[in-house]
Amino acid sequence: MKPHLAKKHAEKIFLGLALTALILTILFLFTLLWDVISDGFPKISGGFLSGYPSRKPSEAGILPALAGSAYLMALTAIIAVPIGLFAAVYLEEYANKSYLSRILELNIANLAGVPSIIYGLLGLQLFVRFADLGRSVAAGALTLSLLILPVIIIASREALRQVPKGFREASLALGATKWQTVWNQVIPNALPGVMTGCILALSRAIGETAPLICLGALTYVAFVPDSVFSAFTALPIQAFNWVSRPQAAFHENAAGAILVLLVLLVMLNSFAVFIRMKFQKQYTQG
């Protein structure tokens, strides 16, 4: 066999391996989706979405969990997005590139990889007990904010870095102060990127179960939370609760709740993709 022919074969084998890996992954994903949809889809109905938990699986609904998740996400976004963005602005625009700021950067990257249950333990001590917020929506949102802050900071810094140098120079050369330049030019131009990052971070938070269970979020809630200090449950907790029941009918309910969660996730992620595409169009024009 000529050497280049051997190379060609190696090429084919490598391609085959890569393709197999891809097909396997997609196959798993589709199996999972199919399983959830076939079990859960028949459950989805107006009653399921607007009902309260019940001892009878056929009457049980997810309204408190859905409302709890929505409440939790809104509050998490309100807390985490501004803090994350301004932390990123500080690191990117103001901090000296010193030894200290490099350590800070490294630690933020590490925090993004800390297991979520550890944030749950921190939240339990800090918010539930020390700040005496109890097992409330506020404690949950603060804990989830801590969890996603590193991700938001990293994504925001990336977005700030993408803002062309020319905008900063033009603004400063007109006599704008650093803060005016950051506020009027840098942040607005980074915003689509920041929002994409934030939405992806929130979509991570919406599926988190461990830290909320750690906080002591209730698994059976028969009411919609009416304030930030109210107790709550969330979709993944509800699903977890139903899955751990012995009755098979509850497992179908769990599949239904997971399906609703998946739909929410897909919606959030498509919104992020939509923003990114719009953003690219804006820059390629002209």
Binding site: P164, F167, N184
Partner: peptide, 25 residues
């Protein structure tokens, strides 16, 4: 004032580009 090598209008309207300086002052 300064004009740069690569033209760098802000991604805003023509009006807002020119009005930016007076506004920040």
């Amino acid at each position: 004032g300064m004009v740069f090598q690569r033209s760098n209008p802000f991604p805003k309207s023509i009006f807002e580009n020119v009005a930016y300086g007076p506004k920040i002052h």
